[in-house]
């Protein structure tokens, strides 16, 4: 049965020509909008896998250890009672069987169980913040989870023996999976899907909780003052507001000379267009334009005070050289 929402073609559209070169995949929802996921790269996934292996091994070792203690206790308990010795031995045997069955289920179906139960996440994936999704953007089902976890045995091929590489041991022991197959397959598709992902139509996406991001508050009186000075009939285009928002968003992460260098490209022509003093700080101008494009300026205009003594910058500048909008060099 095909769901009416299932996409007919293989997967979904992502990275259409002309889109930015990001590892985003876009998912069309039944609500007829498209939203983006960031695809998880091979190294984050490998770390998550290594973590899962550690967890599986750790739990297996603990279980075997506890089981060994229990076996010896049972055998010890029954050893001195001649009649009951056989029962003790049978109990120990049965628990060994249970242990093997547990180990089999745990080794081969841990990932499948976790991904079905916890909406596409195993412990390793939870820690590294990634999640398995169907390529249609929906959570995976049990079938996909089982199959992609079984195909992993092919993906981690070929194993390499640490012993024979470093010459510790003559016999090839200490096999470590190289995951070469998975890496090669990931190289040949755009969504970093390994073989198991291709077969099950799944993709591993970065699962970040949305951070609250609204407008950036620029707490500088000069910005507001400059905002008022920008001609009122100037309406920033969509592209310009996007660029401004991106710029202001990145501002805290850039050094001052870098800021000046970037702001110059937009600042110079804008100053010319507005017919303003060419010595005005370009960075301030962009911030002001951002402020004006995204905020109401009404109250500000009403309480407008001409720039004066209040606009003393935080950084000490020689008073004689100071004009409020001059580039601070």
């Amino acid at each position: 049965m095909k769901s009416p929402f299932e996409l007919d073609y293989d997967g979904f559209e992502s990275m259409v020509d002309g889109q930015p070169l990001d590892n985003d995949l876009s998912v069309a929802t039944p609500e007829n909008i498209a939203f983006q996921y960031r695809v998880a790269g091979p190294f984050r996934r490998m770390l998550a896998y290594a973590f899962d292996v550690l967890i599986v091994m750790g739990i297996a070792i603990v279980v075997v250890f506890i089981a060994a203690i229990l076996f010896s206790m049972v055998i010890q308990l029954f050893a001195n009672m001649t009649n009951l010795n056989a029962i003790g031995e049978a109990l120990a045997g049965m628990s060994q069987m249970l242990l093997f069955l547990f180990l089999f289920t745990f080794f081969f179906f841990y990932g499948a169980f976790m991904e079905t139960r916890y909406n596409g996440q195993s412990f390793g994936k939870m820690i590294f913040g990634i999640r398995v999704l169907g390529t249609d953007g929906r959570p995976i089902n049990a079938q996909q989870a089982v199959l992609r976890n079984l195909v992993r045995y092919a993906d981690i091929l070929p194993p390499v023996s640490l012993g024979s590489i470093f010459g510790f041991w003559e016999t090839p022991i200490g096999f470590v999976p190289t995951c070469l197959i998975a890496f090669i397959v990931m190289m040949f598709n755009r969504r970093y899907q390994r073989l198991g992902d291709l077969i099950c139509r799944t993709v591993v996406a970065v699962d970040t909780k949305p951070e609250k991001q609204g407008l950036i508050n620029i707490d500088d009186k000069r910005v507001r003052e400059l905002g008022v000075m920008i001609p009122h009939d100037f309406v920033a285009s969509k592209e310009l507001t996007q660029a401004l928002a991106a710029y202001v968003d990145r501002r805290p992460h850039l050094s001052l000379p870098r800021l000046m260098e970037i702001a110059k490209h937009l600042g110079e022509p804008l100053l010319e267009l507005f017919g303003m003093d060419p010595r005005i700080n370009h960075d301030l101008l962009l911030c002001a334009l951002y402020y004006r494009s995204f905020n109401e300026l009404k109250e500000e205009t009403e309480n407008y005070e001409p720039p004066g003594i209040q606009a003393v910058p935080a950084t000490p500048i020689q008073p004689s050289a100071y004009t409020p909008y001059r580039i601070d060099v």
Binding site: F35, N119, L133, N141, K212, G214
Partner: peptide, 22 residues
């Protein structure tokens, strides 16, 4: 602003995952 679009993307993705559950 792009940051808000980003936030909305993640929010919608998250809600979508809960609505169309496994």
């Amino acid at each position: 602003p792009p940051t808000t679009v980003d936030y909305l993307n993640k929010l919608v993705g998250r809600a979508h995952n809960q609505l169309y559950r496994g």
